[in-house]
Nucleic acid binder design. Structure first.
Length: 554
RNA sequence: GCGCCUGUAGCUCAGUGGAUAGAGCACCGGCCUCCGAAGCCGGGUGCGCAAGUUCGAUUCUCGCCAGGCGCACCA
């Protein structure tokens, strides 16, 4: 079915036949790579195989190409040309695009899903923001990219579990409790000094206000320790609920919310330290326990248990990643902000210390996000004076645009987020361009049905009628989709899907403007409807991967 | 000082060891008695600098220059 594989096999066979016939010297053959050429004058597929083989066969590329061409005798191959320094350009019998489309249509809504990941168990952990305040736009990028990556890996056949690590233990949670307490006391008219590492967000005041509403001043009667303990729980539950709500609104779901506390409660940290000590990767110095991370290329060893006996954040993370591996994942992917990149080495060191391969943990680093409005950098929210929250962004530009803009760039690039562009409901906006193509196809089907055409079964369409350059080009573009999914998944690069579906939508718009669908001769109409159907399902599939809606009308 | 990311068109960014390096925005000019003009068609002297590897480098390596982010017994 896959034409590339058929071609690869044929070329390999021809090369071996040429060797057997003495037209080529014996030798190792490189992998036969096929690509869609940059221009269609160079054929349907092209290969640089002859150039790659030149060295091992000690023959000039054009001679190799010539020998292969002479041995290629396939009826589906219209012609093969040797071009430039030795490219093989393959021109296929036009029938192949119609067979390609028939295969696409037979897969229906599943078209685009592949078996590339072959059931490999993989975990993706992302966002994992501290439950001490609202998500900001940086978390938004992680949430959009992470959820799209999960969808993408699933589309490529991986067995994926998504996870959020809740930092519900440690200093930041104590500071949360102290902050809420301070606001609570203020609301009850006391003068208090706000904690040095406290959280200044308006949401903390809201939490305190709700506590006053529900419980009045009864916490004043408790001991300070007891009061803080209770505030800690109340605030934590509230922050967590808010996080879940914001993420759900942003079309982000997690299979598992993993609590850091459970590690402390189950003694997982002590047990992990013990295991490390036994393996010789943990030692004591200056009263503290150190991980020997320099053994795996870190700049310095890292403290795991402080001299006061309290574990560091790294200690919990070591236990957490050990736990992940023990759950049987073959591959872990963590998505972190650029400000955490220095942390990668020590966590990998910990994983390696437990006897796993460090490559089993992949850390994807997301570069920073800058918001721009009217060409000006937006530093703070006008409303709150704090960082702009994900919720504010969703309110301003909508979930679809926010997700698409976060995903459409490579994670390695800093992201300049143009609020005006994302917000515009006009032709400037790439999100609407794609959604418009989908809505347009839906509209075509509505028109066809009104005209009495049965559009439910197009399997009898005579696809060979699709012979114009616009139709052929569109089918070829459509045919590239599954490989795009596999490739994007392998590269952990959801932005490739954003780009692909934008290109596909453009190709469809061109086709639409050149080829009338509804109202032409019946057989041709059916064939064009079938093509539109295939494009529709691919756009839907791709937008679903991105977590962006595919509206039937706009 | 060390580490990670980036430097491609006026702006924001894709892209590739190969044949004429692309898209969106912006700008200019065309296209609706016809399936949605949120659309289509046309308009382009650009890979930070300098060396190396290679038949071939914008892509790989080294060195500079510039920007971002880090460099805690914080998380």
């Amino acid at each position: 079915m896959d034409m590339k594989i058929v071609l690869q096999t044929a070329v390999e066979k021809a090369a071996k036949a040429a060797m057997a016939a003495g037209k080529l010297p014996q030798g190792e053959l490189p992998e036969i790579l096929l690509e869609v050429p940059p221009q269609k004058e160079f054929g349907d597929f092209a290969s640089n195989f002859a150039m790659q083989a030149a060295r091992s066969l000690k023959t000039n590329p054009r001679s190799i190409a010539q020998a292969i061409v002479e041995e290629l005798r396939e009826d589906w191959l219209e012609k093969v040309e040797i071009a430039g320094p030795g490219f093989l350009n393959f021109y296929l019998n036009p029938r192949w695009v119609h067979e390609l489309l028939a295969g696409i249509l037979a897969q229906g809504d599943r078209y685009g899903s592949t078996k590339h990941g072959a059931g490999q168990r993989i975990q993706v952990e992302f966002v994992s923001a501290n439950p001490t305040g609202p998500l900001h736009v940086g978390h938004g990028r992680g949430a959009a990219v992470g959820s799209a990556l999960v969808n993408l890996l699933r589309a490529a056949g991986y067995d994926v579990a998504s996870e959020y690590y809740i930092n519900d233990a440690g200093n930041q949670i104590d500071n949360l409790a102290l902050s809420v307490e301070a606001r609570y006391l203020e609301l009850l008219g006391q003068t208090v000094e706000f904690p040095a590492d406290g959280y200044h967000g308006e949401d903390i005041v809201d939490t305190a206000r709700r506590i006053v509403e529900h419980h009045g001043d009864r916490f004043l009667k408790l001991s300070v320790a007891e009061r803080r303990e209770q505030f800690k729980e109340i605030a934590l539950q509230e922050k967590l609920a808010a996080l879940k709500e914001d993420l759900a609104a942003f079309n982000v779901q997690f299979d598992h919310w993993f609590s850091e506390r459970t590690l402390h409660e189950a003694d997982a940290i002590q047990s992990a330290c013990k295991a490390l000590r036994e393996k010789g990767y943990l030692y004591e110095q200056d009263g503290a326990q150190w991980l020997k991370s320099t053994a795996y290329g870190d700049d310095k060893d890292r403290v795991v248990i402080r001299d006061n006996g309290v574990p560091t954040y790294l200690a919990a993370d070591i236990a957490y990643h050990r736990n992940k591996m023990e759950r049987g994942f073959e591959q872990l992917i963590n998505i972190w902000g650029a400000d955490h990149h220095g942390y990668i080495c020590r966590v990998k060191a910990a994983i390696a210390s437990f006897g796993y391969r460090p490559e089993q943990l992949e850390v994807l680093i997301l570069q920073m996000v800058s918001l721009f409005r009217d060409g000006e950098l937006v530093k703070m929210s006008k409303r709150t004076g704090q960082s702009v929250t994900l919720t504010e962004l969703m309110e301003e530009v909508g979930t679809d645009a926010a997700r698409f803009f976060f995903i459409m760039r490579s994670i390695d690039s800093q992201l300049d987020f143009d609020l005006n562009l994302a917000k515009s409901r006009t032709n400037e906006n790439p999100v609407y361009y794609i959604q418009y193509a989908h809505a347009r196809i839906c509209s075509i089907f509505r028109q066809a049905e009104e005209a009495g055409v049965d559009t439910t079964d197009l399997s009898a369409a005579e696809l060979s009628l699709l012979s114009s350059q616009w139709e052929v080009d569109l089918i070829k573009k459509l045919g590239e989709y599954p490989e795009e999914i596999s490739q994007a998944a392998a590269e952990r690069a959801p932005h490739r899907i954003a780009r692909y579906v934008h290109d596909l939508a453009g190709q469809f718009h061109t086709f639409y403007n050149q080829c009338r669908i509804v109202g032409v001769e019946a057989e041709l109409q059916t064939a064009r409807l079938a093509l539109a159907k295939g494009v529709q399902s691919a756009i839907r599939h791709a937008l679903a991967v991105l977590g962006v809606s595919a509206p039937d009308r706009m």
